[in-house]
Design a protein around this nucleic acid. Structure first.
Length: 583
RNA sequence: GCCCCUGUGGCGCAAUGGUAGCGCAGUCGAUUUGUAAUCGACAGGUUAGGGGUUCGAGUCCCCUCUGGGGCUCCA
């Protein structure tokens, strides 16, 4: 069902390099077409991307879908004309006069270091400032399609002009293009927003507000199963589970530094008894209060404090997206307070817990990055080195491959981020393990060490699932809504063939329910075929058809969601089968 | 927040500026069915909200809100 074979696996370096050149060339061909249709257009940049390419233009009116068709038609003509790509190296002065009516190109030239060799690529009448490389000729662009139009700031800077970007894709064959388009359709078919409605999992309401989720009964079951498992595994790994309030006084957020550094993401304060309270955007200060509630001894460390903590953050309206980016969400948060010599073990423990947890949900592919110290930072240099080294060693001991994001850490500490890859090969950031050298300082955290002195603990912030909202969104898409038996909201639907089988159907349901299964009976006066169809569409793992024969034999006719009519077996055999599937 | 697009019963959609329709879901009735849609009837809408143009607005214009594709952001 989660068929990786259907995906594209020709990702060798040479294929990628070829695609890269072809897409870059396609961008030129597109810009050529746009300039012919819109002679006044000013060109931005037009690079290849992961799966295609884009080019940005400053035009007097936005592009329309009809424009895309005309542009694509012109591109086909250029491709059919078999023009060749020619590279030339030119002087800075020549470049400046050549692009004198292209202000964005002039800006690029301006910003290139003096020693850079400037080059241009030509095909037909078209010239673009470009390093290359390109394919030999336009005919090498085998299969191309323009996809959509979007606004994009010049150089990604919201203070600069907004250009019109056209996205397209190009592949080495029509077949590869079709595969890609099919993959897009597949992603659309798995969209958690659509499945969430169809399967009755959650909804978002204008009346409640954007980015705020209400979980429906079916989604509530899935979420609580995830939470139950999460709690179980955290207790097993010696975490202490706590609960903290949704609001806290201004003074708390003053001390934590959120009011000076994070206020633009926080909601306006509430006034209670002439005191200001803020909705929490993070759980850290509350967990710190738990730590500070008594004098701590080194003997108590490491102290791991965990919470499914619901936080609220102001996210700009344009970034909200289903469950993936919301304004209120529940983090599976934890803060670990430990001694310097415990740091490495704690980081390792978090990694082990992460892979155990994610494995249970069927995620096998990850991409890991280690982010190191940025230019401005809090804390002592030797603590940064110790912490970064412990992150690195924990990764290496587990033979995990990772990228290093040099200088990409937060100002308060280095971190490991883990992105999980779903069934379609898309990546989602969920897990993060972050050192914090700032908060222990701000809250003056300490413990009594073996010498009777006071020392400052290390603090590690971590979330594994990230937010339950996002994680469930990822899960829905990963499974395409067909949750495995242990997570399925309804595990079996009993389908009586005629009204006279209702009572027997109820007794089957009771037998299964008494063993802890989630079962429903479709007792409507409808045809069996309709009930099967509905159960299939609801992606219920087991359909149990009961008619005269089953009633007589104390059996059920088993049909699985994957399509098979397995024939009749006894209820006892069914229970064995289900139990077997859950282990 | 910015650019573009979008908004019609719960859901998916239709309606040259001239009587708001269809399918699914829902309710009721008939049917009692053996592995992906039985038939019929009924009910359901101030066309997201506000303002304007017009004899007349779902349709055209303006504002607000929402959703989508991107950009930016994601201490």
């Amino acid at each position: 069902m989660l068929d990786h074979g259907a995906l594209d696996h020709t990702n060798s370096d040479s294929t990628q390099a070829l695609r890269h050149r072809m897409r870059h060339s396609a961008a030129h061909v597109m810009a050529d077409a746009v300039l012919r249709l819109f002679p006044e257009a000013k060109m931005g940049i037009g690079p290849p991307t992961q799966d295609g390419f884009y080019y940005d233009f400053d035009v007097s009116r936005p592009f329309t879908p009809e424009d895309l068709e005309s542009i694509e038609a012109l591109m086909r003509e250029t491709i059919a004309a078999q023009q060749t790509f020619k590279r030339e190296e030119i002087s800075r002065n020549d470049a400046q006069s050549m692009f004198s009516d292209q202000p964005y190109k002039l800006e690029i030239i301006e910003d290139l270091p003096d020693e850079t060799t400037l080059s241009i690529y030509r095909h037909g009448e078209f010239i673009d400032l470009c390093q290359g490389p390109h394919v030999d000729g336009t005919a090498d662009i085998q299969a191309v399609k323009l996809l959509n139009i979007a606004g994009a700031y010049w150089r990604g800077d919201e203070k600069r002009p907004m250009l019109q970007r056209i996205y397209g894709t190009a592949w080495e064959s029509q077949e590869a293009l079709d595969d890609y388009l099919h993959r897009l359709e597949e992603a659309e078919r798995r969209d958690h927003r659509t499945l969430g409605r169809q399967l009755g999992l959650f909804s978002i309401h204008e009346e409640i507000g954007p980015g705020l989720i209400v979980w429906h009964p079916k989604g509530g079951i899935v979420r609580s199963l995830v939470e139950d498992y999460w709690r179980e595994i955290h207790f097993r790994h010696d975490y202490n589970i706590v609960y903290s309030p949704h609001i806290g006084r201004a003074q708390l957020w003053q001390t934590s530094g959120h009011l000076s550094h994070y206020r633009e993401s926080m909601y306006a304060p509430l006034e209670v008894d002439e005191q200001e309270y803020f909705l929490k955007p993070m759980n850290c200060p509350f967990h710190i209060m738990v730590y500070r509630s008594s004098l701590r001894s080194y003997r108590e460390l490491p102290l791991r404090i965990a919470e499914l903590g619901t936080v609220y953050r102001y996210e700009r309206s344009g970034v909200l997206h289903g469950l993936m980016r919301v304004r209120g969400f529940t983090q599976d948060d934890a803060h670990i307070f430990c001694l310097p010599e415990q740091v490495e073990g704690e980081v390792g423990g978090v990694l082990d817990l992460t892979f155990e947890l994610l494995d249970a949900f069927g995620f096998a592919e990850f991409s890991i990055s280690l982010s190191t110290r940025p230019e401005s930072y809090a804390g002592e240099l030797d603590m940064w080195e110790h912490a970064t080294e412990s992150l690195r060693r924990a990764l290496e001991e587990r033979h995990l491959t990772y990228d290093i994001d040099e200088g990409g850490g937060a100002f308060y500490g280095p971190k490991i981020d883990i992105k999980i890859e779903d069934a379609l090969g898309r990546e989602w950031q969920c897990t993060t393990v972050q050192f914090d050298f700032n908060l222990p300082e701000r809250f003056d955290l300490n413990f009594m060490d073996a010498d009777g002195g006071r020392s400052r603990p290390y603090m590690v912030h971590r979330a594994i699932l990230g937010s339950l909202e996002r994680f469930l969104g990822v899960l829905i898409e990963h499974y395409a809504g067909a949750f495995p038996l242990w997570l399925a909201p309804t595990q079996a639907m009993v389908i009586p063939i005629a009204d006279r089988h209702q009572e027997y159907a109820d007794s089957v349901k009771e037998q299964l329910e008494s063993e802890g299964y989630r079962v429903e009976v479709d007792g409507r006066s409808e045809r069996m075929n309709l009930k099967i169809r509905n159960a299939q569409l609801q992606k219920i793992p087991y359909m149990l058809v009961v008619g005269d024969r089953e009633q007589e034999d104390g059996a059920v006719a088993v049909r699985t969601r994957e399509g098979g009519n397995l024939g009749a077996i006894s209820v006892r055999e069914l229970l064995e089968r289900l139990a077997g599937e859950l282990t």
